[in-house]
């Protein structure tokens, strides 16, 4: 009995010592990314190339990520905010100025992404993937046609047809849902006009009656037929289509949000050197292609096309068909607007 207790005490002690030791080891990288967004083969290749052990944790909205990181000592090294969120994080002093524009692989970055408004000199961020936020519709249940037409409208989720009622999911991202409502109403984005917002609030409240869920795991919801339509990102829509061919990605005629996610190093990152290696690594064409092949979004790296799967080059989700609106990249709204948005959003989630 006594021997057993001693042995287990030693084992416990060793376990703690080893656990504590490895947490401080040099070969680590803690990645905080959107769920189901990180290509496993990319991580494997990075681990192999640099002898670094990567751990991944995930989030389901920019706001959730910000809330966790803002607290400080999150333990994460690298995270993947969208465009406007990069700007907020820079202003909040949460990011390390890692100067990616001086990194070796920066030469591969396409011209369009070298000087975005959120990080004009690319001093903090490296492009990850970019895309649009539209609507996925399972045409087995509601026919919207395969090419742009008049039915490609936000009304699919804001004033849904009988067939889709109660079978709709919305993304759990405040800015995207509100932007969709404003597009449908034909109002300005980043809007602080009270009358417009009142109208928006009424619209969302009435539309919510027909929404089944407001959640992140969209691919699974579509393929399990829990929902027939979802406010969705283009790559996620493509991944759902690869399982159910009748799922169409709708570019709503009223306009849609474009976004670009970026990899950044946190100011309090424990493993800065490994984080730098990672930023440089994902700018190499063959590695960027792995990201695209997995998540099904376009990347911003020239020369990655030749490493990409054929399914990507003719995918209507990635290559917008003629006659679809140009995506709008919405900068961070002023504080008063965000406050109003937050109230509308909280009211919606009750």
């Amino acid at each position: 009995m006594k021997l057993k207790a001693t042995v287990s005490a030693i084992a416990l002690g060793l376990g703690l010592a080893m656990g504590g030791g490895s947490a401080m080891a040099e070969g680590e990288l803690h990645l905080f990314n959107w769920g189901n967004y990180t290509a496993p083969d990319l991580i494997e290749a990075f681990e192999k190339a640099h002898g670094v052990e990567v751990t991944i944790d995930d989030y389901d909205s920019n706001e959730a990520m910000l809330a966790k990181v803002k607290v400080g000592s999150s333990g994460y090294d690298v995270t993947v905010p969208s465009d406007y969120m990069v700007k907020i994080m820079i202003e909040e002093g949460l990011l390390l100025q890692s100067n990616p524009h001086e990194m070796e692989n920066f030469q591969h970055i396409g011209d369009a992404f070298r000087s975005p408004y959120w990080d004009p000199k690319r001093e903090y961020s490296v492009p990850w993937l970019w895309g649009t936020t539209g609507i996925s519709v399972n045409t087995n249940f509601y026919d919207v046609g395969g090419a742009p037409n008049d039915r490609w409208s936000w009304s699919i989720v804001m004033d849904p047809p009988e067939e889709l009622r109660g079978k709709i999911n919305m993304v759990s991202e405040m800015n995207d849902v509100i932007a969709a409502g404003l597009f449908y109403l034909g109002k300005d984005q980043c809007n602080d006009n009270r009358d417009d917002l009142r109208e928006l609030n009424d619209l969302l409240q009435s539309a919510k009656e027909h929404w089944r869920t407001i959640e992140y795991g969209i691919i699974e919801k579509l393929t399990s037929l829990d929902v027939y339509a979802s406010h969705n990102w283009n790559g996620a829509s493509m991944r759902a289509r690869l399982q159910i061919p009748e799922i169409v990605y709708v570019y709503p005629k009223e306009g849609l949000v474009g976004w670009a996610d970026n990899v950044v190093i946190l100011a309090d990152a424990p493993n800065v050197e490994n984080a730098r290696l990672f930023l440089n690594f994902i700018m190499a064409p063959e590695n960027a292609a792995m990201m695209s092949n997995f998540a099904r979004y376009a990347n911003s790296v020239d020369g990655s096309e030749q490493h990409m799967e054929a399914a990507m080059s003719d995918a209507p989700e990635v290559n917008a068909p003629n006659g679809t609106p140009t995506p709008t990249f919405i900068p961070p709204c002023p504080r008063e607007v965000t406050e109003l948005y937050t109230k509308i959003w909280n009211n919606l989630l009750k």
Binding site: N169, S172, K208, W211, R212, T213, I214, E215, N346, L349, K350
Partner: peptide
């Protein structure tokens, strides 16, 4: 499903 919240979720939010 992100709706039908309870107190625990409201607090976490």
């Amino acid at each position: 499903g992100g709706k039908n919240m309870m107190l625990g979720n409201l607090i976490a939010n």
